[in-house]
C-alpha cells in the first residue's frame, strides 16, 4: 500500500514539476542561440548624458530602432511596450525600454527625452553620432535607410520594426516581431525577469 502511494507521489511530482522544467521554453519571438554582446558604444541619453549599452547590464533591455517623425509604427510599438510593463507588474522594474533613433539629424537628446517619457517615464531614447548608431544597428542586424519622399515631411526612414530583447548579461536573446500582442510580448519577457 505504502509502496503504491509512494510511487504515485513520485509520478505526480515528476509529471507536474520535473517534466515542465525539462521541456524547452516556447517563445513567441525568434530565439537567438548565440546572441551578440552589447557593444560598448556611447550614445547621448536623457539630459544629453553619455550612455553605453553596457550600462544596462542587470536589466532586461527591450531595444527598438525608430524615430520621432514616425507617426504610426513607432508610437504603436512604444504604446504596446507601456502596456506590457503594466502586464508585468513588479517585474517591470527589471525591464528597460530603449529606443535608438534612426534619425539622429532630427532627433536630439532633448526631443527624444520628451518623446519617450510620453509613453512611460522609464523609457529612454538614445541619439548620437551616425557612425555609432550604425555600429549598434549592425551588431543587432538592424536595417535602416533614409528615403527621399514626395511627402512634405521630407525624407522618411525605412527601418527594422522588430524588438530586440537583451538579457541581464547583455546578450541578445530574442527578436520580437511587430505584430505580437501585448500578452505575447509580456509572456516572453517574463522568462527573463525576476
Amino acid at each position: 500500500m505504502f509502496v503504491v502511494g509512494g510511487f504515485l507521489a513520485v509520478a505526480v511530482f515528476a509529471w507536474f514539476v520535473v517534466l515542465p522544467r525539462l521541456q524547452p521554453a516556447v517563445f513567441n519571438g525568434q530565439v537567438i542561440q548565440s546572441g551578440a554582446p552589447a557593444p560598448a558604444v556611447v550614445l547621448e541619453g536623457p539630459d544629453g548624458q553619455p550612455v553605453s549599452l553596457t550600462d544596462f547590464e542587470g536589466k532586461v533591455v527591450v531595444m527598438y530602432f525608430g524615430y520621432t517623425y514616425c507617426p504610426d509604427v513607432c508610437p504603436v510599438t512604444l504604446s504596446k511596450l507601456a502596456r506590457v510593463r503594466e502586464l508585468l507588474g513588479e517585474d517591470a522594474d527589471d525591464v528597460q525600454v530603449v529606443m535608438v533613433t534612426v534619425d539622429p539629424e532630427r532627433d536630439s537628446a532633448e526631443v527624444l527625452e520628451t518623446y519617450m517619457s510620453h509613453f512611460d517615464p522609464t523609457f529612454i531614447g538614445l541619439t548620437g553620432d551616425p557612425s555609432d548608431i550604425n555600429r549598434i544597428a549592425t551588431v543587432y542586424g538592424v536595417y535602416y535607410e533614409p528615403e527621399e519622399s514626395t511627402s512634405s515631411v521630407g525624407y522618411l526612414v525605412n527601418h527594422t520594426a522588430t524588438l530586440m530583447v537583451i538579457d541581464k548579461d547583455g546578450e541578445l536573446k530574442l527578436i520580437l516581431p511587430f505584430d505580437l500582442t501585448d500578452e505575447q510580448v509580456a509572456a516572453d519577457l517574463a522568462r527573463f525577469v525576476g
Partner: peptide, 19 residues
C-alpha cells in the same frame, strides 16, 4: 500644418512609410 495620406508597409521585418 499639412495633411497627407500615407501607408505603412512591412517587408521582411522592415517598415517603410509611403506617401
Amino acid at each position: 500644418g499639412v495633411t497627407e495620406l500615407h501607408i505603412s508597409v512591412m517587408n521582411d521585418g522592415v517598415m517603410s512609410m509611403q506617401h
